[in-house]
Design a protein around this nucleic acid. Structure first.
Lengths: 329, 329
DNA sequence: CTGTTAGCGCGTTCAC
DNA sequence: GTGAACGCGCTAACAG
């Protein structure tokens, strides 16, 4: 294994000079710089990261902790995080928690052990409810999940507003009896519920809401029982892409026509939502941007640990498609 | 920062004993073991990974290099890899290459620098064509992409067989003029093409094949031009989920009925394939299992570097749905 | 079975 | 502007 002293010998300088050149310190003369660079290339020298990390106490690593990378939202976020990290010469360590507080805790411990510079985290409800940045030795940026009043950096969708607008869209298209299936397990689902309720209230319309656990199967079941009730709601609203999937499955089993018998709208502009017949009205989240902003916020926080906490709130985009077309009265 | 000598002092033993207890070496007496464990707990001692890695020359890390984590196939594989790695106390470093040979090379270098124990890799066509395990200092397991004759561990779908059976299925349902859109950029696409051609040949049927770059847009365009030709093929076959998506989009623009006017079948059992109308016949890949087997193979290779190379070939599952229903003659 | 000690490869003082 | 030397925290070899 070629190491720094080999390079030093070859270049006819000391190891200190090699180290300085590699660190980009400007206190080194141009001739030595060239000598070193040449020797590095000739020997194909690669600094030993373990030694460097031990000595410098820096890992050049950040952590990304999500519930499940297979959730398309997190897939996209993680791609953005990887891209940004790569371009900043940083490594990313990824963990899946499956919303399990114990796994969450062990992931966080792992991040501590790895001496990450910071973590991007989508906390479970449980963790979020007792969350305090002070409990951790590294900065954390929350994504997707957040509770008002928490002193923490975060990048979020404006869930209330998005659900409000989606509901407004349904109402303005003539739908009045609207059923809302929301993810009861997450702060995000509950915030979307609040947006929905506020929009309904502004029209003096009664609400019909159903909390469901975050699983396709459960959403499917819940949707089925709603679709079998009399009178049938005029529209059904899903607070997440997963729930929307469950509803869509259920609708395929019934012979109900969309939007004539019942309109549909939901969250997350996944590829399939425009392929089903009819295509589905959704709120598109700027997922890649959320990831990009999260790591940006994290890097800034690392650079200036003392500055005030910030929440970055991004707007969803309403994509109106056939499934929520105007009701013929 | 609490370190090993603090623990040693507290437990009244030497640092070596602490190290041995933590390494799980069986050469330590039960009393000292208990003393050490207690001290570790009391001080909340966490070994410094950088120091440990420097000294032991082991990183407990493996690499995963894929073209794009957003490809659902790789998402699933990566989840499996993460799960297995986590349960083996291993870290995973993930890289996206976008099929770019340069990025591929820098990812591989990064893995070398990180001293990973091994890498799971889906190589670009270019890399695959000149691939040799001997070029790397760590073991590599190929996933998804592979070329006959390469001496490398790999976990693969039986692409030839899957495409053969999918074609057989179409033929046995009365479709004879079949157009095949295949991914020309990957070995995988070409192997599926071969399976298709073989099946057609066994029935003395002429083939009509079209290579497309691996982008939805391109597949869409190619599908459009096929759908506009006279006479219309009786069926259209896609060699990947991505191409199937492009075809599905194109079909929505035309007013062709599926399967009456044209039947459709393809690869990858993604959630949306059973939600579109009509639902799509596909070959389901055992994606999670592929990831699981890949890391299993890698760990075995790490354990015994000298043993013979192995390719693990898994079978796809034909899921017949409405889009390929029997042709009424 | 346990303790002492020599480095692992590098970054960083501190003299020059 | 440069080099010599120390030590980051740990593991492993060796002595006892």
């Amino acid at each position: 294994m070629v190491q720094i002293k080999d390079v030093a010998k070859r270049a006819g300088v000391s190891v200190a000079s090699v180290s300085r050149v590699l660190a980009g310190l400007p206190v080194v003369s141009e001739p030595t710089r060239q000598k070193v660079l040449e020797a590095v290339k000739e020997l194909d020298y690669r600094p030993d990261l373990a030694a460097r990390r031990l000595r410098s106490r820096r890992s050049d690593t950040i952590g990304l902790i999500v519930s499940d990378i297979r959730n398309p939202f997190f897939t996209e976020v993680s791609r953005a995080v990887e891209d940004m990290a790569f371009s900043h010469q940083m490594r990313v360590i990824l963990c899946n928690t499956d919303e399990d507080p114990e796994k969450e805790a062990s992931c966080l411990e792992l991040m501590r052990d790895e001496k990450v510079h910071g973590v991007i985290l989508s906390p479970s409800s449980k963790l979020l409810s007792r969350y305090s940045p002070a409990d951790y030795s590294f900065p954390i940026v929350l994504v997707d999940r957040y509770e008002r009043g928490i002193k923490a950096d975060a990048v979020l969708l404006d869930n209330f507003d998005a659900a409000y607008r989606l509901t407004e869209h349904l109402v303005s298209n003539g739908h009045r009896r609207i059923a809302c299936l929301y993810g009861s397990a997450s702060a995000t689902g509950r915030q979307r519920l609040e947006g929905h309720k506020a929009a309904m209230a502004s029209h003096q319309l009664p609400v019909q809401v159903h909390g469901v656990p975050p699983m396709v199967h459960e959403a499917h079941e819940a949707a089925m029982s709603i679709l079998n009730q009399k009178p049938l709601p005029q529209a059904i609203l899903a607070s997440s892409g997963l729930i929307l999937l469950g509803i869509t499955e259920a609708l395929r089993e019934t012979k109900l026509r969309v939007p004539e018998d019942i309109a549909v709208a939901g969250f997350d502009n996944l590829p399939w939502t425009r392929l089903v017949e009819p295509s589905l009205t959704v709120i598109a989240q700027p997922t890649y941007e959320i990831g990009r902003e999260a790591i940006e916020l994290l890097l800034q926080r690392i650079a200036s640990p003392g500055s005030a906490v910030r929440q970055l709130v991004l707007q969803g985009e309403l994509i109106a498609r056939s499934s929520s077309a105007a009701r013929i009265v």
